[in-house]
């Protein structure tokens, strides 16, 4: 029994997170609209302009869950 927290971080938090596998980026689409995503490297997000959602990338792991996505009209 070690870390039973909701957030498990095995790598140090360096803010931006690791790069996403480029081959993975080629096949990723928006889970809602199935439209291509825009990779915002600086914000470490995958943006679905159509759905108005930005999916976070945490330590190189894209979180493609609508519940975890940021609404694009939110303040950044």
């Amino acid at each position: 029994m070690q870390d039973t927290d909701q957030q498990v971080h095995e790598e140090p938090q360096d803010g931006s997170g690791r790069e996403v596998d480029p081959k993975l980026l080629e096949i990723l689409v928006c889970p809602l609209t199935k439209a291509p995503l825009r990779y915002d490297r600086e914000a470490s997000e995958l943006v679905s302009d159509q759905a108005g959602l930005a999916f976070p990338i945490r330590n190189g792991v894209p979180i493609m869950l609508v519940d975890e996505a940021r609404q694009l009209d939110d303040t950044k």
Binding site: L24, P31, V61, M64
Partner: peptide, 17 residues
């Protein structure tokens, strides 16, 4: 914890082309 590349997805809304 799974081999990379890994991502969180909902099986009911898959994000793959």
């Amino acid at each position: 914890r799974a081999p990379a590349p890994a991502l969180a997805v909902d099986e009911e809304a898959l994000p793959f082309a």
